[in-house]
């Protein structure tokens, strides 16, 4: 565990909690893509199946359980508890366009052709693009609430910090995992445009809105 990874995990946790609190306190999931949240729930479920087979550490187990629990709670709030506020007309990204090709890719490019390993690989590939329905929704409506922008920033920052962690681990331990690194790079690049808008607009007190 190095500082980059710890900061990455904290940033990830913060993102998840910001989103949960935003929905809970405003009693509304307006502007939030339920499809991205379903994809994240799928990411955590397929990645953390090793909870059942391997114990790594108390920290590891706790964080995995929190991530899974929070992601299902978020999906439940969007599709059940606060369903009336869910903006489904703007959440039109087709999930199968991501899930099917990624399932095929994880069968073809993986470290080991074993069920848990393929599911882990699937989760890594899927996570890299799971935010697309949310970004698509923001670009479709042309704006995002400030709190939603904070969520997206924390979520993007998490993978950028993991990239730093992998650079650190490569030099400190000679460890690298090409699948995670390439997918992490793709994931971080997808957020770059958003990072630019966040820094130039949201941090200056303006709402995130896209030029018409």
């Amino acid at each position: 565990m190095n500082l980059f990874r710890l900061a990455g995990d904290v940033s990830h946790l913060l993102a998840i909690i910001i989103l949960l609190l935003k929905i809970w306190r405003t009693r509304s999931c307006a502007g939030i893509s339920g499809k991205s949240q379903i994809l994240f729930a799928l990411v955590f479920t397929t990645r953390y199946l090793d909870l059942l087979t391997t114990f790594i550490s108390f920290y590891n187990t706790t964080m995995k359980v929190i991530y899974i629990g929070c992601s299902y709670a978020t999906v439940w709030m969007i599709y059940a508890k606060f369903k009336a506020t869910y903006d489904s007309n703007h959440d039109t990204f087709r999930m199968e366009f991501l899930v099917i090709p990624i399932a095929a890719l994880s069968l073809l490019v993986n470290h080991d052709f074993a069920p848990l390993e393929i599911l882990w690989t699937f989760s890594i590939y899927l996570e890299s693009v799971a935010i697309l329905p949310q970004l698509f929704m923001v670009s479709k409506t042309g704006e995002a609430e400030t709190i939603t922008s904070h969520y997206l920033f924390a979520l993007g920052l998490y993978r950028a910090l993991y990239l730093m962690n992998w650079i650190w681990r490569f030099f400190a331990e000679g460890f690298f995992d090409l699948i995670a690194i390439v997918a992490g790079l793709v994931q971080t690049i997808l957020y770059c445009d958003f990072f630019y808008l966040y820094i130039t607009k949201v941090l200056k007190g303006k709402k995130l809105s896209l030029p018409a």
């Binding site: 090793d50 995995k64 470290h111 995670a180």
Partner: peptide
Amino acid sequence: DAIHTKHDEL
């Protein structure tokens, strides 16, 4: 080995 060490990350 690489396959097992990577699962220590979240």
